[in-house]
Every structure is written in C-alpha cells, then in structure tokens.
Design a binder for these strands. Sequence first.
DNA 1: CAGACGCGGTGCATTTTCGGCAACGCAGTT
DNA 2: AACTGCGTTGCCGAAAATGCACCGCGTCTG
Lengths: 299, 299
Amino acid sequence: MKHLYTFALIEAVARSGSMRKAAEDMNLTASALNRRIRRFEEEFGSDLFERIPGGVRLNPAGEMVLHHYRATLSDIARVQSQVADLSGERRGHVSIACSQALLPYFLPEQIARYRAEHPGVTFSVKVRDRARAEQELASYDSDLALVFEPVYLVDFEVLHLVPQRVHVVMRGGHPLAARPEVRLRECLDQPHVAPDARYGVRHLLDFAARRMRRQLDPVLETESFELIRHYVLHENAVGFQIPIGLRESADGSVAFRPVSERDVAPGSLILGQLRGRTLPVASARFAMQLAAALQDVAA
Amino acid sequence: MKHLYTFALIEAVARSGSMRKAAEDMNLTASALNRRIRRFEEEFGSDLFERIPGGVRLNPAGEMVLHHYRATLSDIARVQSQVADLSGERRGHVSIACSQALLPYFLPEQIARYRAEHPGVTFSVKVRDRARAEQELASYDSDLALVFEPVYLVDFEVLHLVPQRVHVVMRGGHPLAARPEVRLRECLDQPHVAPDARYGVRHLLDFAARRMRRQLDPVLETESFELIRHYVLHENAVGFQIPIGLRESADGSVAFRPVSERDVAPGSLILGQLRGRTLPVASARFAMQLAAALQDVAA
DNA sequence: CAGACGCGGTGCATTTTCGGCAACGCAGTT
DNA sequence: AACTGCGTTGCCGAAAATGCACCGCGTCTG
C-alpha cells in the first residue's frame, strides 16, 4: 500500500539504526529518506528518533508509531482478505507460532484438513518457545500462537485452552510402562532426558521437583523434543512430553504414561492471538477449527 | 495526516454519493478525485463504489475500507494523545454519547471533576437514544457511550454496569409520594407522562405492562425527560425516570419513588466502548473515573 | 421525442512534489 | 590533525498530481 511508504521507511530505519543504511536497503538516497522522515515528524508533531552519534534510535513515540504501522498493515491485509472472501474465493494466509509438541501430529493433520477444504489458503509455521511465541503475535509476525504454558503477557488473548498432563516417554519394554501412571520420584531416580528451561514442560517439572526438595538432573538436556523421543529408544532412560505430541507406535517401541497429578500439576495448552486484534478470515476460521480439534483432544 | 488523504476523499464521496459534489466539498476537481479513487481501487484490488446512474454508492468492499479508515484515524489520534501524554502534558479530547438521564447531574459533575485535574482535556457530549449511541461508537464518532438499557450488544464492550430501577416522578404533595415504593398498576390508573418507545425506560415499562395485560396510555409522550420532570409540577400526573437523573429538590417540589421490582425489572445503565478498541488516554482515564463514580451511585 | 443536464471517465498541459547529487557541520576514531 | 561516517540542507531535474476541456451515457424535461 503506497500511502504507507513513509512508515515502511521508518521501520527500515528503526531496523538498521541508521538512515544511510536504511536508504540503501530501500533503494533511495539518504537525503530523500531523511526528508520524508523529518516531514512526517513535523506533521505528526513529535520526533520519532533519538539522534545519537553514529546513527539513530527509536524513541518511545517512534515505537508507538511503528506499532500503529504494523497494526494498520495487518488490518489492511484483513480487509483485503475479507473482500476477497466476499467475491467467493477462499484465499489467504495463516501464520502460526507454536510449541514443538504440535509438530509431529496435531498441526500437520489440522493444516492438511483445512487445506483440503480451502486449497487457496497457505500456511507458515514458526516454532517458538513460549516467550517468543507471544512476541511473534505482538509484532504481527504471526496471527495465532499455540503454546504450552504461555508466560501470559498482557497482550495475549486466550481463544481456547486445554489441560495437558506431563507424560513420561520411554521404551516399550520399560518397567514403568507397566503402570497406569508414574510418580515423579521414580523418574528422578533413574536416567532422564529433559527439555531446557525455556519450555513449559521443564518449568512444570522444575516446580514440582522443588516442591519435593528434589531437582532434575538430566543425562541429556535439549531444546528438541524429537531428540528426547528418539533418545529413550537407545538408553533405558525416560523423557518428558505432553500427550498431544505423542502417539502409540504401531510396533510398541515407544510408550508413555502420565505423571501423577499428585506430583506435577497439569499445564495448559493454549491457543491465542494478539489482544483486540481482528484476524484475517482464513486465520479466524482456522482458529475455530483448531479450537474444535483441541476440544476433541481433551475429551 | 496527509497519507490518508485518499481515504478522506473516499469518505467524502461516500457521504455525498457523487464524485463531483465530493470534489467540490474537498476543493479539487472531479477529474483529480476520480483518478485518485480509480488508482486506489486498482492498488487495493477491488472497486469500492458501485457506479449507478446519477452517482456512486459504496459497495461492501468500500464499506470495509471506510471502516478501516475510521479505525486508523482513531488509532492515530490515540497514538498522538499517548505521545503527548509522555511529554507530561495532559491534553486530549473525550467524546461521549449518553442517555438523557445523565445530563442534569451526573455527567456535568463528572466532567467538571475531571477537568479540575486536567484542564487541558476537552469534551464533547452527544445525547443519543440507546440505538444511536452504539452507532456513534461504531463510526468512531464517540469514544464512550453511557446508556440505559442498550440494544444491540454486538460491537459493544461493557466497561461498567450498574442496575437502575425505574422510578416514578411526581409533585411533592402527590399521594403516591407517601409510600416507600409504588406499584405499576397505581401509575397506570392515573394520568401519566412517558418517554417514547426509543428509550429504555419506556421499553421496560411497556414490557412490564404487557405482562400484566395492561398498556401505557400517556397523556403526554415525549422524547425529553426534562419536559417530563417539569410537567408533573403542573398537573397531578406521574412521570418516569431512573434515579441517576433525579435529585431531591431543596423545596420538596419534586418527589420520586421506585416502582416495585415485582412489576418492573431493574434496567442496566451501561458504560461501554467499541469492542476491541484501544481508547485515547484521556478517554480511558475518564472511563475509569466514570466507572468508579457509577460504583458509588449503586452503593 | 429531442434536447438539456448531470454523471463518471479520459487526454493533455501545467503545477507541485519528490528524489538524486553534491556539499556542509559535527561527532568519534586513527 | 587527518579521516571516516553520520544526519542534514540547497539546488535542480524527474515524476506525480492537478486543472481544464471534452467524451459517452443515462435521466429528466419541455
């Protein structure tokens, strides 16, 4: 949208921290860029940048303007998508930031199901830990976030919530697999594999362990749940994951059992968006489908 | 904001229903205006106007674009007001649409109180019946609405709610003034003065009367509660109003008593805004003050 | 029924705006 | 002290927007 060109320039300057660099990025001269920005600052009634030796930096007013720009961009995209929608064609794009647990089964199934009905809709999926996922929303880089145990920033609006108990993952023949549920103490007493501190599962485990005056002492700490799932096949160790990221293997090589609720409280898998935002049609519809599917997962 | 000029033109065309008239209003030639709009339609990817003999009319896409424009304008105003706020100067403007009952006592007191603390803030107050008040919000013509018994609550976000019982208004010496509360039947049996059907008070009364197989038969029907209040001084009639619009007169010339809750259910006086909107600082602060004051009224 | 009228839309000349180039002042750095 | 890189400004040509005259078309009117 051409009338937002000045804002695009402002964003470029903010990103690079320098007018000359931004000018090069945007394919114009520094003087032209400078004048556009000065003119806008005058019209707006306040400077947007703090001029520091060696470059510029956004001041608080600039941050607000930039946020307005991003909100405007997203709103225009929404309007365009709604307009396209009323001419009958179901097109659009859904961007979603999610936790790792959704990658193996849940999300691919859901996306495929949606695309089967609306082949014109495309998707982008970003894997983010729970803190980053919310930043994605705030910067309008993603429409939806589906995360386990979000940190709950103010701008996060919950669309749907399902409880998920932390499960223990292990080899099929593991002795603990014989029980319907497992005590945390038993896990800590043997080799275990755990996600790092950024993840909700780890957060819940740390909290529970501290309460019983114990602590996790993982033989392997990683940011990859896929690694966890596969590692327990090779050593007689236990890993942790939430059930939405787990599925019985046909050959019974992997087993998982819930950790007792007496030890570890269930966490929440939450579908959310940026507070107050009106999503593009495609994203809104997909969110509804996700909510329904999550409902079934819980049941 | 200059970059929104095209949108302003679109709005002018939508308002007048004619490009030539709009051009005159906006002080340019019809050709220039026409080309701006055609160019925008091309960039946007869809026509905004339906070309009909004798002029143009917004199509659905145009309505959405116009809504986007209004939302953008209001957001810019909000950003500007927040920027002004962080440089310490408390300036800004609050626009509010309200029911008549707020005019004599509540609103003037509240506005004066707010302005005593923030002299830089100005106000505009529009008196609207409950349906119109919500349209005011939807078109971004008012920031806040304070109405009795609002109707369509779709885009209406409730900020605060206080119950208000319908009261009977009469001369000081009126026989009904001797009771602590009054039955509706007694009112209908004597000359009564009532607001017209657009108002929440009337709505509640009509509903209650119908339930007891009666109906209102006012000697005077009016859209002015001020007229109602003053008329009952001249004839031995009763009028209706909610207590926030009433106050004991020093000389005891006017009296008011609640209608029994067995007859007429209490209505809701509701402070609200457009759903999902972030208000300018001044409006947001004033809304908080109003909410607190309404709390006290209820107590 | 024909002409006048008012409408949206277009070609062309004009005016206004905008961008590129070169240069300046001002830091911090070598 | 020379140098480098920064934001900023004057000047001029390029590009975009505007005004004017005019077209085709439907409606209204005498």
